[in-house]
Design a protein around this nucleic acid. Structure first.
Length: 628
DNA sequence: TGGTATTGTCATCTA
DNA sequence: AATAGATGACAATAC
């Protein structure tokens, strides 16, 4: 391996894997591809828990038409698995996929670790793993499938329990001159082991062991040409030893990007038709579309499936088709929609042009348009194969957000990765190459120029299906950008988790911008709701206070009235008492005392004396007058 | 068709 | 200085 660097770095630069005549690297590449052969029935956006606690998401999912609904799922990015070589991901998909009831689960730890090692540029770790695996295979040390997770990654010990594989010693002892038979037998055993109804998958361990056990024989014995007829059907490929077309000389002589390996080849691997290989690119793609729908496809059991990027298809997939790894998904959304005939630019641009939207989706048009144009050229296959735009447009909106995921069979997504693979969809069998590129620019103009449309809501609603109509604007945007988190999750996530999530996942600038806007708007929405709630509470409390104060006022008024009444009664009583006292008073001559001339006055010792009014203190006079 | 309530969003302020 | 939350103001929408 001559060069290895993270292929997500440098804004989409590719990791070119110059494949040498090295079996280890061959195995490595095989594992890379195999890793993509996830079991079916996973849905786009499925969050996969890794044993190391990290998560990843299925970002692409392509069904195998001939396998009765089975398919492959691809993780969002190896970057999601963490970058610490000391803590390789474990348990990849194991519990989840088993919970889904799929018949086969690829090896967990080693495969993830291999991809992880390659993706992170840790070639030594990957090679050490491979070497350890080979040594383990030769030494016959292993503990079964579960032993995979027990092995120490990074070359410490044999990470793969090769001996426990159903392809154990018997396969290793096969004649070196019959490598293809080994492959076939391996596939047969594997299918025998894993076959379950229409779903059968080749075990990574089986393949790994096969390659590890007799590398020289395998490598040298594989003919350069087609050595055997294609299997007549999937079942043939599954249940009987079958020869496959494996051209290793071509495989090891090409500079292939990891992106190609991961994103392009997995589907292409199932094309075995030599005629199709020699066809023109577009024709090949079309043939590929149809081939994948026929019994010629053999999911998981054909060795060619493990050598996708060594297939001749890579020849016509020029770098123009691949060169922008950093193409953001939204660009792909535009592309796929725009590239299809009869597309209405509004169908895409409304996602960006809804009023008040400033998340940068539209404003970042310079970078956006660039990537779109790039992806435009790189998506000629997809554009030509799409044919119909409406279905795509709606399916595109059904992303990972909100937990409302489309069925795998519908998952022909807009991103550049899956766009290369959607030939597996039956809908693309009878499509023509309609390169309506002009629509793209018009859409871009519309997305970048206008921010308000008259009657836009009605127009927008026309493009929303029932599901999307129930989604919020941010949810639709998030779907359009294939953001692998729910809006609720983005909003409610703690700050630390949010920041770590942004750093852990491979997200384009647009995605990050949208996520931050979603979070900001969501937080502010909640804050506004709380604010209004508080304001309403304050108003209600004030109203309650007014009511209580009014009631208290009434009570005080009643008490005052009662006091006045009591006072008047007391005055009346005092008046009567006063006159009663004077009526009984007599002076020393026996004459009645006139209350007009005298007054009753209380002394400090409590006694009552009769005082002439002219001798009274003025204040006492007033009191006596009041009492009268 | 106008009024009103609700809600989302942005700008700005505040802690 | 940066940031999250609070809040006023405005617009869109539904009734």
């Amino acid at each position: 391996m001559k060069s290895l660097k993270p292929w997500w770095s440098d804004g989409g630069s590719l990791l070119h894997l110059t494949i040498l005549l090295s079996l280890a690297e061959l195995r490595l590449d095989l594992d890379l591809d195999l890793y993509l052969l996830f079991p079916p029935r996973t849905l786009l956006g499925d969050e996969l828990l890794l044993q190391n606690g990290q998560t990843s998401h299925i970002f692409a999912h392509r069904p195998f038409p001939a396998s009765g609904g089975s398919g492959r799922a691809e993780l969002l990015h190896p970057k999601c698995w963490g970058r610490d070589p000391a803590a390789p991901p474990e348990g990849l998909l194991l519990r989840e996929v088993r919970a889904l009831g799929v018949p086969f689960i690829p090896s967990t730890r080693v495969d993830a670790w291999l991809v992880h090692s390659v993706a992170t540029g840790d070639a030594d770790g990957a090679h050490a793993l491979l070497g350890a695996a080979a040594a383990s295979s030769a030494g016959g040390v292993g503990s079964g499938v579960d032993g995979v997770s027990q092995a120490a990654p990074g070359g410490g010990g044999g990470p793969r329990a090769v001996q426990s594989s159903p392809l154990a010693a018997g396969e290793e002892e096969k004649a070196p001159a019959e490598p293809t038979a080994q492959v076939s037998d391996a596939g047969g055993l594997a299918s025998e082991r894993y076959q379950n109804g229409t779903d059968a998958f080749f075990s990574l361990e089986d393949l790994f062991q096969l390659l590890s056990s007799q590398p020289e024989n395998l490598f040298e014995g594989i003919p350069l040409g087609d050595i055997a007829p294609l299997p007549a059907s999937i079942n043939d490929g599954m249940n009987s030893p079958t020869h496959y077309n494996v051209n290793f000389s071509q495989a090891i002589s090409q500079d292939v990007s990891l992106h190609e390996a991961m994103l392009l080849c997995s589907d292409n691997t199932f094309r075995r038709d030599p005629v199709a290989r020699t066809s023109q690119p577009q024709e090949q793609i079309l043939q590929l579309s149809s081939i994948t729908n026929t019994e010629q496809t053999l999911p998981g059991t054909n060795l060619t499936a493990f050598l996708p990027f060594v297939d001749n298809q890579m020849r016509y997939l020029s770098q123009d088709h691949l060169y922008d790894l950093d193409i953001n998904i939204f660009d792909d959304t535009n592309l796929m929609s725009l590239a299809t005939g009869g597309f209405d630019p509004m169908e895409v641009s409304w996602l960006l042009e809804e009023p008040g939207y400033d998340s940068g989706l539209s404003l970042d048009s310079s970078n956006n348009s660039t990537s779109v144009i790039k992806s435009n050229s790189s998506h000629s296959i997809c554009e030509g194969a799409t044919g119909s735009s409406s279905d795509f447009s709606h399916q595109d909106l059904e992303g990972a957000v909100g937990g409302d995921y489309p069925e795998p069979s519908k998952l022909c997504h807009m991103n550049d990765r899956s766009a290369f693979h959607f030939h597996s969809d039956l809908a693309f069998q009878h499509v023509s190459h309609n390169h309506t590129y002009h629509l793209q620019s018009s859409a871009l103009e519309s997305t970048s120029d206008s921010f308000s449309w008259p009657g836009k809501s009605q127009k927008i609603s026309r493009y929303l299906n029932d599901t999307d109509r129930n989604l919020s604007r941010d949810e639709r945007r998030a779907k359009a950008l294939h953001i692998p988190f729910s809006v609720d999750e983005i909003i409610r996530m703690p700050v630390d988790s949010f920041n770590s999530m942004l750093s852990r996942h491979y997200l384009t600038d647009l995605q990050v911008s949208l996520i931050r806007d979603i979070r900001r708007r969501g937080k502010n929405k909640v804050a506004a709701q709380n604010c209004r709630k508080r304001k309403l509470d304050v108003i209600l409390n004030l109203e309650d206070d007014v009511c209580s104060l009014q009631a208290k006022k009434e009570t005080l008024k009643r008490e005052q009235s009662q006091c006045h009444k009591a006072i008047n009664i007391m005055k009346q009583k005092l008046h009567h008492l006063y006159h009663d006292v004077f009526s009984r008073l007599r002076d020393d001559q026996g004459r009645p005392v006139s209350p007009n001339q005298y007054a009753l006055q209380c002394t400090h010792d409590g006694s009552v004396v009769i005082v002439p009014k002219e001798l009274m203190i003025p204040g006492q006079k007033k009191e006596n007058q009041k009492g009268k």
